[in-house]
Every structure is written in C-alpha cells, then in structure tokens.
Design a protein around this nucleic acid. Structure first.
Length: 290
DNA sequence: AATATGCCCTGTACGC
DNA sequence: TGCGTACAGGGCATAT
C-alpha cells in the first residue's frame, strides 16, 4: 500500500517537521512553478520571506504554520505531497532520494535558519500536484479551515454530537463520514477501516444508525486513527537519517485494499468486498458489517 | 439546502 | 514491447 496522507500521516509529518522549522526564520522561498493544484496566491513568496515560523499545527489534513507576523501558511499534501528537510548535520541534499526530494517534482524550496540547527532546507515534492498551499493575513477568514467539523481525536467529537449530525442524513454512512463539515480529517481509508471495526455496513443510511452503533463508530474512529499515528510515530526516529523522509510508513489495513481477501475478524469467514460509493471505492466485509 | 457527479493530475498496473 | 485504459482520491465547481 502506497503512502497516502490522511490525518494520521499528516500528523506524523507535522511531528517530523516541527523540530526543524519551529522557531526558524524563512530566509528565502523559491517556487519552481506557478501552481500546484491551485496557483500560489499573489504575494506568497514575499509574505513568507522574513517571517519566523512560530508553530506548526494541524487541522484535519491541513498543515498550519503560524508566522511571527500573525499570518498563517497553509499546506495540504493532496495525495502525493511530501516535505523533505535537510540541515547541516543531516545527509547532504544530494543524498536525498532522486526523483523525489531532488527530482522534477520538487515545486517549492525554502531556506530557513533555525536557532540551534543553523541552515535548514525545506523542500516540497508533489508529483500529482493534488496538494496546495495558501497564505492568510492575520485575522482574515480561512475558507479551508473555518467550515471544518470537529477533530476526530478531540473532545468535540462525541457520540451525541455525531448522532445529532447524522439523524437527518439519508445518504450512506460511508459518504457522510467523508464530509469534512461533519467530522474533519477522515479520508477514504480510515472511514473504511472504522466502519469495519465498528461492524457497520457502509451502505446503511446515516440517519438509521442507533445510539449503540454510533458509540461504536466514534470509538472505532479514534482507535484506527490513534493506531495509525502510533505506527507513524515509530518511524520518526528515522526521519533525520539517510533520505530525510518524514512520515512514510507502511500501515496495515483490515479491509482497505484487500478485496477478495478473507475478513481478518476471527471466525467471521467473510470475504472482503469492494463497492463504489459516490465515485470512491469502499472496502467492507459483507458478513460481519451490517 | 442537501446531494450527486465530473474534474484535476501523474505514476502504476494490467490486458491485449 | 508498446499501447490504451482504469485506478488512486480530497476538495472544488457545477448541476439537480
């Protein structure tokens, strides 16, 4: 299974990058093309240069870098976006994997100065360019962040909250869970996994779930995300070595990508199926999910 | 208003 | 081997 940056992967990237860029001053930024998924906004480079990154946060699948002037540097990795760092104690940039950090898909390179690490090079690679970046002036509305629902790992996601948001929904629970206004940061993989763990059929009408099922679902969402973050965290020790890649880890899934394989639930006996809902693949077990 | 579809983009896998 | 096609999918735009 190839790396795909959903919430746990973005969190792992955040944890990997933070020690290199928090507190660092952005000396220069080079754009190798005018756009990713969207054009870089007017004043992007000028707005970043000279700023110090005071904090690197995450909201849903967005990386949110707070700047000393009060602005916000927003980044979304899309499907193939990746950050690479190199400082003077790490491998030379030339040792970074060719075709990735050194290749034709590196679209943004920023030179930073970190108070203890010295010069740090931060590169962004994104072959498919589904990612994007934006820059927001202090105090301005953020159309990406503002509409988002609660973080799935925070206290705001609760069974009563979710029950309230689901009760009027006629669409399938799988599709509703991908709506970032309901819960922020769930993607196709972890929705499939959470529905399998909570034994809920992805085709069920969201509004038809009962209280017990919703409680199981909320618990499962937390569990699959936390397990994935833990798996990612275990790879961070390698972050500052060899290829300098943050958060690239193989994580095992119960159903995602396992069409035709036996359901991993003990004594279930089902075979993992794949259906398409709202244009996306859904993997599920037709025996134990109902 | 809520819901559904098409689009973006490129590397990879696969059938013929 | 080469060529065409399907697929991966988050979020936006558009249509209903």
């Amino acid at each position: 299974m190839k790396f795909m940056p959903e919430l746990p992967e973005v969190e792992t990237v955040r944890r990997g990058l933070a020690p290199f860029i928090e507190g660092a001053r952005i000396e220069s930024v080079r754009l190798n093309r005018p756009d990713l998924r969207f054009p870089f906004p007017q004043g992007f480079v000028d707005g970043l240069e000279g700023q110090t990154i005071t904090h690197l946060g995450r909201r849903a699948k967005y990386l949110v870098a707070a700047l000393s002037g009060g602005g916000v540097w927003l980044s979304h990795l899309g499907m193939t976006g990746a950050f690479f760092v190199a400082d003077q104690r790490l491998a030379e940039p030339s040792r970074l994997k060719p075709g990735e950090a050194g290749g034709k898909h590196v679209h943004v390179v920023a030179d930073l100065v970190h108070p203890s690490r010295g010069r740090v090079t931060l590169s962004y690679s994104d072959p498919r360019r589904f990612g994007f970046m934006d820059l927001f002036a202090p105090g301005t509305a953020n159309p990406f962040i503002d509409p988002l629902g609660p973080e799935p790992l925070g206290n705001d996601l609760s069974a009563p909250y979710l029950a309230d948001r689901l009760k009027a929904k006629k669409g399938p629970i799988k599709t509703v869970l991908l709506d970032q206004r309901v819960v922020a940061g769930l993607g196709n993989i972890y929705v499939c996994e959470a529905l399998h763990m909570s034994r809920i059929d992805p085709r069920r009408a969201a509004g038809a779930l009962n209280e017990r099922e919703i409680e199981r679902l909320v618990a499962a969402i937390r569990q699959v995300l936390e397990a994935a973050i833990a798996a990612g965290g275990s790879t961070l020790k390698d972050f500052s070595q060899a290829d300098g890649q943050p958060g690239y880890f193989q994580h095992s899934f119960a159903v995602y990508g396992h069409e035709g394989d036996p359901c991993p639930r003990p004594e279930c006996g089902g075979v993992t199926g794949r259906i398409v809902q709202a244009g996306r693949s859904t993997f599920y077990c037709p025996v134990c999910q109902h």
